[in-house]
Structure formats: structure tokens, C-alpha cells
Simulated scan of single mutants.
Amino acid sequence: MTAKTPPETYYAGAYWGARKESPEECARRTAEFLTLLAPSEPFLSQWYLPTRSSRESREHPLMPPDVPTLTDQFRLGVNREKGGPVIERLGYGFWFGNGGRDYDRASLRIYSGGYSEAGSNSCVLTLPTLGRSPNAERVITAPVLTEVVRSMALAWEPDWAVAMSHAHRDLEDEAAKADVWLGWVTYLARQRGTVPPLPAPVRIEPVVNRGTLIVLTPERFTVANPEHIALARHVRDLLARAGLMPRTTV
């Protein structure tokens, strides 16, 4: 009997370099992100403070976002050596979820306000698992993930952002040797350069005056589809030639 292949798991993440921000500024950006994210899908419209159990968490909603509450959470997530002073340059961390359980949940991990050149800032959204979550089929679609990445771009002003499967990310790591992953949905900030014309079915959308969204396929992108992988590699080559995704030297 052939072992059943586990489903691909998907996530979305925004990434940016050193940017000094206070806990209040991190909280304001988080509140903006949650507000922009909520209309994209009901499953992503409710969030709760972290507690010892998911049942308890629902007693402490974060929606609508309250900046003073979020500020307190970022202050609690400050980096420090055990028993030592705050390491301000490493910024602040905050993790919370949408109250779901096991494979049927979403969670957010935010590291923001860091200004050490050795580190980075990020906002990463973990998504429910296809085949194991009643919500995943609805959430893991091009329209929803496009709005997720757009919300990240507007709220966090990252250098780049992506929505993709972990399996696709592993392929990108192995083949591209670049500092940016090209995913199912990718955002590139304006300062990276101008996105060139790309072949169908790829869709390109501006994000106000911030940058550009690239959506590879209207259907779900999967590494099990060789046409999807071929398309991604072709688009990456075009973006590399345009200077938007230069490969790193090894």
C-alpha cells in the first residue's frame, strides 16, 4: 500500500529590515493590520490574547483592536537576557491566535521594532491545514491570500511579503539562493524596482504607492503541479533579470 502524501501547508509572511519603533508604534501597526485583514475572510476576523488554553483565550478578544492592550503585549515581549536589562535593538515579539484548535486555526507571530543589522522584523500568519480543517478550503485561495498580503504591505510597509506553501518555500530555498522567496502571492516594495511584464496567468496589481503584488495562478498553487513549478521558475528568472530578486552568491 502506498503511503498517503500529507497535504501542503500554507502560510503568509511579511519581512523588513532594521527599523526602530516603540511598542506603541508596533501596536498601532498591528491594529491596522488586524483591521485590514478582517474583511478578507471571517476565519481571520477574530483574534484573542494568548492564554494557557484555547478555551480561556476566547474570554480575551483582541477585536476590535485596542492599541493600549496591544502595546502592553509588545512590552511583555521585549528581548532581554535572563535577569538582565532590556535589549532594545532586538525589538519586541508577540504571538496570538484566532481561537481555533489543532489543524483548524490561524496564528500570528510578530517581531517588530528591531534595529539590529544582524536581525530582521517579520509578521507571519500560520494558516489552517487543507484536508483537516473545515475552513481551509475557503481561506487558502488566491483572492483571500491576495488580500492577506495586501494588508501586510499596507500595515507593515515591509521590503517584501509572500503567501506560499512550506513545500514550495523549501524548493525556493534549494534552487533560488536569493534573499526573497517567490510564492503563490508575492509583494515587492517599490524601492526594489519595477516589476516587468509577466506571462499569463500571472496577475500584477499595484498597492497604492507602496509596491506591487504578483499572483502566479488564480487556482491554488501546489508543488504537485509541474506546470505551477515551471511557471514559478520562469517568473523568478524574469524578476532576477530585472534586478528584483538577485541570487545570492554561495
Results as ranks from 00 to 15, higher is better:
Y15W: 14
G17M: 01
T35P: 00
L37Y: 11
E41I: 04
P42I: 10
L44Y: 13
S54Y: 07
S57F: 05
S57C: 02
H60Q: 01
P64L: 08
P68F: 04
V78A: 08
V78C: 06
P85R: 02
V86G: 01
Y103N: 14
R105M: 15
S107H: 04
L108E: 08
G113V: 08
G114D: 00
G119K: 04
P128A: 12
I140V: 15
V144I: 10
T146Y: 01
V149K: 04
V149F: 03
R150C: 01
S151Y: 09
W156T: 03
A163V: 11
A163Q: 06
A167V: 13
A167Q: 14
R169T: 15
L171G: 06
L171W: 12
E172W: 10
K177T: 13
D179G: 12
V180S: 10
G183W: 07
R190A: 11
P201I: 05
P201W: 08
I204V: 15
N209M: 02
T212H: 06
P226A: 11
A230Q: 09
A232K: 03
R233I: 01
V235Q: 04
V235G: 00
D237P: 02
A240W: 10
R241E: 15
R241H: 12
R247G: 14
T249K: 07
T249R: 12
